[in-house]
C-alpha cells in the first residue's frame, strides 16, 4: 500500500518537475535570442580569434617580462632593483584600464601613435609582466640557497646557475600561480574593447547596441570566455602533472620526462 502511494506521489512529482522545466525553457528562449547568436556567430568567432591572439601575445610577452622583472628585483645591483620594484608598484597600484589609456591615448601626445592592436598588447603585457614578475620572484626565492651554492661550487657562472639549476626548479613550482595569472590576463583582455579593438567584447557590444539583445550577447560571450579559460586551466593542469615540482614528497613515476 505504502509503496503504491509512494509511486503515485513520485509520478506526480515528476510531472510537476517537467512542467517547471518547460516553463523555464520557454522563458530562456524568450530571453536568449538563439537565432541572433546564430546569425552573429561569424562575427563573434572573429572577435574570439582576436581576443585569443591578443591574450596569447600578451601572455608570452608578460611571462618573458616577468622573468626579467623577477631577476631585476632580486638583483644586488640597486638601480635594477629600484627600477623593477617601482615598475611593479606602479602597475599594481593603478587600474588596468588607465594603463591601457596611457599607452594608447597618452603616448600619442608625445608623438607615439600606435595601432590600437599594438597598444592593447603592449598594455596587457606590461600589466601582466608585473604580476608575473611577482610570481617568478616568489618561485625563485623559494629555491633553497644550497642549490645555488652547489652550482657555484662546481664552477658554473651565476648566470648558468640561474639558467640550469634555479630557474627550472622555480618554473615548475610556479606553474599553478602562473596559470592563474594567465587566466586573469585572458579575462582582462576584454578591457581593450575600450580602445576599439574588434575583439570579442567589442563585437558583442556593437551587436547588442544595434539589436538591444544585451542579455543574449553578453551571456553568449561569457560562455565563450569561460570556454577559453576553462581550456587554458585544463592545459595548465596537464602541464603541471607532466612537470610538477620534483621534490622528495612527489610520488615516484609521476614527474617530468625530459
Amino acid at each position: 500500500m505504502v509503496l503504491v502511494n509512494f509511486a503515485l506521489d513520485f509520478n506526480k512529482l515528476l510531472a510537476q518537475a517537467k512542467e517547471l522545466l518547460d516553463v523555464i525553457a520557454a522563458k530562456i528562449q524568450n530571453i536568449i535570442n538563439f537565432s541572433l547568436i546564430y546569425s552573429s556567430f561569424p562575427k563573434l568567432l572573429d572577435g574570439a580569434k582576436v581576443s585569443l591572439l591578443i591574450s596569447l601575445c600578451s601572455v608570452i610577452l608578460g611571462v618573458s617580462l616577468g622573468i626579467i622583472v623577477a631577476t631585476g628585483r632580486l638583483s644586488k645591483f640597486w638601480p635594477t632593483k629600484a627600477i623593477s620594484s617601482a615598475y611593479v608598484a606602479f602597475i599594481r597600484g593603478t587600474p588596468m584600464i588607465v594603463q591601457i589609456f596611457i599607452i594608447h591615448y597618452g603616448l600619442a601626445e608625445f608623438g607615439v601613435t600606435l595601432p590600437a592592436f599594438a597598444s592593447g598588447i603592449i598594455a596587457l603585457s606590461l600589466n601582466s609582466g608585473a604580476y608575473m614578475g611577482e610570481v617568478f620572484r616568489g618561485g625563485i626565492q623559494s629555491i633553497d640557497p644550497g642549490q645555488t651554492q652547489a652550482g657555484l661550487s662546481l664552477g658554473l657562472t651565476p648566470f648558468q646557475v640561474f639558467r640550469y639549476i634555479v630557474f627550472p626548479q622555480a618554473f615548475r613550482r610556479v606553474i599553478p600561480s602562473m596559470g592563474n595569472e594567465m587566466v586573469t590576463l585572458t579575462k582582462d583582455s576584454s578591457l581593450v574593447n575600450f580602445i576599439a579593438i574588434a575583439e570579442l567584447t567589442y563585437r558583442a557590444t556593437l551587436i547588442a547596441s544595434r539589436t538591444y539583445e544585451y542579455f543574449t550577447m553578453y551571456i553568449g560571450i561569457a560562455i565563450v570566455y569561460f570556454a577559453i579559460t576553462f581550456a587554458l586551466s585544463q592545459l595548465l593542469a596537464l602541464l603541471e602533472r607532466r612537470m610538477g615540482p620534483y621534490d622528495s614528497d612527489s610520488k615516484p613515476g609521476k614527474g617530468l620526462r625530459r
Binding site: G146, Q147, A150, S153, P168, Q169, L256
Partner: peptide, 12 residues
C-alpha cells in the same frame, strides 16, 4: 670541489 652537509643534489 665542495661537498655540503645537505647534499644539495639538483632534484630536477
Amino acid at each position: 670541489g665542495m661537498v655540503f652537509q645537505q647534499f644539495n643534489l639538483f632534484p630536477h
